[in-house]
Structure formats: structure tokens, C-alpha cells
């Protein structure tokens, strides 16, 4: 409880292909920012994850291991 659960990076949504490399998380390419936000929102609602904007055209989606929803 006192320690925050370690988030797992679940997916990456970006408009700038060159700013990310593939790793454990799938990378979703978007044409522009509205599309990127839309994809991020859908993925959030589907998988119960949290979106974090890195402000370089990339949004990372993380899932908390023991998330209480």
C-alpha cells in the first residue's frame, strides 16, 4: 500500500516514428495528434491503463500491476 505499484509499459502511441524504438511494448503510429489521442483513449478504455503524455509527440500507456481499477 505504501509503495506505489510498479507500472508496466503497455503500449506506445506516437506521431513521431523516429523518437521511439520498439521494445517490450507495441508502438502504434498515428498520422496526427487528434488521431494519436483517439487511439490512446481507446486503448485506455479497453485495457484499463493510464496515459502519460511525454510532450514529444508520444503518449505512453502504462498498466499498474495491482491496479484497483
Amino acid at each position: 500500500m505504501a509503495d506505489a505499484p510498479t507500472p508496466i509499459m503497455f503500449a506506445i502511441v506516437t506521431t513521431r516514428k523516429e523518437s521511439v524504438h520498439g521494445g517490450m511494448a507495441p508502438v502504434f503510429m498515428a498520422r496526427d495528434e487528434p488521431e494519436r489521442d483517439r487511439i490512446a483513449m481507446w486503448l485506455c478504455r479497453i485495457t484499463n491503463c493510464i496515459a502519460h503524455d511525454l510532450h514529444n509527440g508520444t503518449i505512453v500507456l502504462t498498466v499498474n500491476q495491482a491496479s484497483n481499477g
Binding site: D37, A40, M41, I50, A51, H52, D53
Partner: peptide
């Protein structure tokens, strides 16, 4: 852009514009 503040206390980062 995306940091939620209450007064001058930072709460969290909200990535979704919605």
C-alpha cells in the same frame, strides 16, 4: 500541458485530452 494541479499542489499527469 498535462500536469493536474490543485492550487499549487501537483497531483498527477493526465495524458488524455478528453
Amino acid at each position: 500541458g498535462s500536469l493536474l494541479y490543485v492550487g499549487d499542489v501537483m497531483m498527477m499527469e493526465v495524458g488524455l485530452p478528453h
